[in-house]
Design a binder for these strands. Structure first.
Lengths: 231, 231
DNA sequence: TAACATTTTTACCGGCTGGTCAAATATTCA
DNA sequence: TGAATATTTGACCAGCCGGTAAAAATGTTA
């Protein structure tokens, strides 16, 4: 498995030769719009069916393009997938990297949860794309998880641990606290079909996000953070 | 999409004609072992790659069988998938159905979380199979979610709501409390690759489940349940 | 052992898969 | 304009896909 996300952003086939001596050549109008069209379509397909389950034919037809035309912009199926993942990982990491050691635990964690839930609501397909990639064994982003993500989690876990040590946060394993935040927030994107069916909502009805926000605040903040009025 | 889980348990092709007047004919030794072998292999493949991403060739080769031989025991790809899902849903629902209105909230919820986490640890592939099915839009179990699961959740949510009303449980939306429990517990199965890579663990190392159990207890019980020594 | 039922294999099918190629068509710009 | 470049198309390919048919092999039982 290739497992290289870095500098594999989408480029038309003829300009995609990275590593050679050529300057990267700026993109055409058509190139920009078509790459965007392809990525949009591919996101729909990959996020539903995963890498293996997705087909170029379906992506092409969703993008309203012929398959060879699609392959003019992306070298192959894998490159489309990698381009999507690369775009996603930024969105993914930013909120975590914004947790500040100097801030207030309640505000920092609360803000993080809120942003994660917003992302879940705004980018549900990206969330499902990510989930599919992990379920498949992370063939494309294993390196990223092992290195960059781990490093960032280690950093932030240290901050959380300090808060625990200072008695500003209920004693808990910081890494698992992050897992709990990830899972609960992403659940509303990844399992949205189940959530809707169980709640009896129509497809596309996102109204449950308000309740979700309330629940997560109750779960993670009202109680977890040590600001009881009783001590 | 067929969407019929009920009475679609695996049967050899020649005995699979349900709905006719024939008695169900008991299974051969060979039939029993081979169906088990197939389901075992299929669980590996489907849980990694989803329904569309999985292929009969890979399932057959994982089961150490020829493809036609495999199709002697299951009518087609979909039937194998449905058989797996049917087997899974029982495991899935049982713990929830065991939540008792007459029990103590802490013990009931705590026990439920514990059992869900145990299932996540014991049946990670089943959990991923389920996750894949939901990500794909629940084409095979949509009816089940809309009817049986919803009904059960409605019942149990009512119990939880009564506990909230009686002040025995922190005010929260019961349904979303269940979602939070589902997501956090299943996360350790569905995203195990990510969990391991972030924690720096080797593949197959399940040691994190102890920490997880501790975390979930802290998150859901120590704080959420209203048994503070301060009131 | 012979008759019968079950299981496995071999050979095969049409359609889809990811992907290539060269020719045809648009677009850009000197 | 026209030459150069960028884009799109259609025809095609080998291999895989889910699945079938029938014969061969194996197991069961009277």
């Amino acid at each position: 498995m290739s497992d290289k996300i870095n500098d594999l952003m989408p480029t038309a086939a003829h300009t995609a030769v990275s590593g050679d001596g050529m300057p990267p050549k700026q993109k055409t109008r058509i190139q920009i719009t078509n790459e965007a069209k392809i990525l949009e379509a591919a996101l729909d397909v990959f996020s539903q069916d995963g890498f293996r389950g997705a087909t170029l034919d379906r992506i092409a037809s969703a993008a309203d393009m012929s398959k060879p035309n699609l392959l003019y912009y992306f070298k192959n199926k894998e490159m489309i997938h990698i381009a999507l993942l690369a775009g996603l990982l930024d969105i993914w990491l930013t909120p975590l990297s914004e947790i500040s050691a100097t801030g207030d635990p309640t505000l920092e964690i609360g803000g993080y949860i809120k942003r994660k839930l917003e992302i879940s609501r705004e980018y549900p397909r990206e969330s499902r794309l990510f989930a599919n990639e992990i379920l498949a064994g992370a063939p494309h982003i294993g390196d990223f998880l092992r290195t960059k993500l781990k490093k960032l989690v280690d950093e932030k876990a240290e901050i959380l641990q300090r808060w625990v040590d200072n008695g500003r946060l209920a004693p808990c394993d910081p890494r698992h606290l992050l897992f709990a935040i990830w899972s609960t927030t992403q659940h509303y994107a990844d399992f949205s079909v189940q959530v809707r069916l169980v709640l009896g909502l129509e497809a596309e009805d996102n109204s449950y996000y308000e309740e979700a926000s309330q629940m997560l605040e109750t779960l993670f903040l009202s109680q977890l953070i040590k600001t009881h009025d009783c001590d």
